[in-house]
C-alpha cells in the first residue's frame, strides 16, 4: 500500500493561515490504514488547526470531510460543493489525491497535508517498511524475492557491496542489507549456485527515469 507521513503542524499552519475558509479532506484507504491521512485523522487535524487559529486569533474557518479514495473522480461528487465553498483544500491523501483535486478544481488552491513516503508493507502494527519502487521491470525472479532496487541503498544488482556488516547496510545499522537477505534466502532455497550468474545492465527506461508513465487496459477503456 501507499504509505504517507503527516507534515508537521507548523508547516501545515504556515501553508493555510492566510486563507479564510479551509476544508481538510481525508482519504480513507491506504493512508487511513497507516493512521496518517484517513477521514479520522482529517477530523483530528482540523480540530488541531481550529485550536491553533483560536490561539492566534485568526478568523480562519476550518471544516473537515473525507472520501473513500481521492484517486477516483466519482468519489468527489459527495464533497464537490464543500470544496467549491472553501477557498483552499488541505488534502491528507497521498500525492495522487492532492494532484487529482488540483486537476478537477482548477480555481481551488490545494495543499498537501502529508508527505507521501513509499510503497511498503506493515511489518507490525505501526511499523511500515519500503518494499518496492515501481521500476516497471521486476527482477524479483532472479533475487529470491527480495528487491535490490528498492531495498539496497546503492541499487547494487550484483551485491553485496563492501560495506555490508553483520547483515546491516553501511549507511545505518537499522537498515537490513538487501543482499544479505538475498544470500540467506538463496541458501534457504538451496539455490546458491544462482548467485554467481551476472545480472545484466538494467533497462531503466520503464522506471520513472523513463518519464511519467501511463497504463491503458484496452478492453475496459471507454
Amino acid at each position: 500500500m501507499i504509505v504517507g507521513k503527516q507534515k508537521p503542524l507548523d508547516e501545515i499552519w504556515s501553508m493555510i493561515k492566510s486563507h479564510k475558509n479551509v476544508l481538510v479532506l481525508g482519504c480513507n484507504t491506504c493512508v487511513a490504514v497507516c493512521h496518517e491521512g484517513g477521514n479520522k485523522e482529517a477530523e483530528i487535524l482540523s480540530s488541531l488547526l481550529r485550536m491553533r487559529a483560536s490561539q492566534e486569533e485568526s478568523g480562519i474557518a476550518v471544516t473537515n470531510s473525507g472520501v473513500e479514495r481521492q484517486c477516483e473522480h466519482e468519489f468527489f461528487d459527495s464533497v464537490k460543493d464543500a470544496i467549491e465553498a472553501a477557498d483552499a483544500v488541505l488534502s491528507t491523501a497521498c500525492g495522487i489525491g492532492v494532484q487529482f483535486i488540483a486537476e478537477k478544481f482548477p480555481t481551488t488552491v490545494v495543499y498537501p497535508g502529508l508527505n507521501t513516503t513509499f510503497l511498503g508493507a506493515v511489518e507490525k502494527i505501526g511499523v511500515m517498511k519500503e518494499k518496492c519502487q515501481a521500476c516497471g521491470n521486476c527482477v524479483l525472479g532472479e533475487t529470491a524475492g527480495i528487491c535490490p532496487v528498492a531495498r539496497c541503498a546503492k541499487r547494487v544488482l550484483n551485491g553485496p557491496c563492501g560495506g555490508s556488516t553483520k547483515g546491516s547496510c553501511e549507511i545505518n545499522k537499522e537498515v537490513d542489507c538487501a543482499w544479505q537477505l538475498i544470500v540467506n534466502r538463496l541458501n534457504a532455497l538451496g539455490q546458491m549456485d544462482r548467485y554467481e550468474t551476472l545480472a545484466p545492465i538494467k533497462d531503466w527506461s520503464t522506471d520513472r527515469a523513463g518519464g511519467p508513465r501511463k497504463q491503458i487496459r484496452e478492453e475496459i477503456q471507454e
Binding site: K40, E43, S47, R50, M51
Partner: peptide, 10 residues
Amino acid sequence: DQSYVLRAFE
C-alpha cells in the same frame, strides 16, 4: 478516541 479530547479542548 482522540476526537473526544480534542472536542473537549475546542
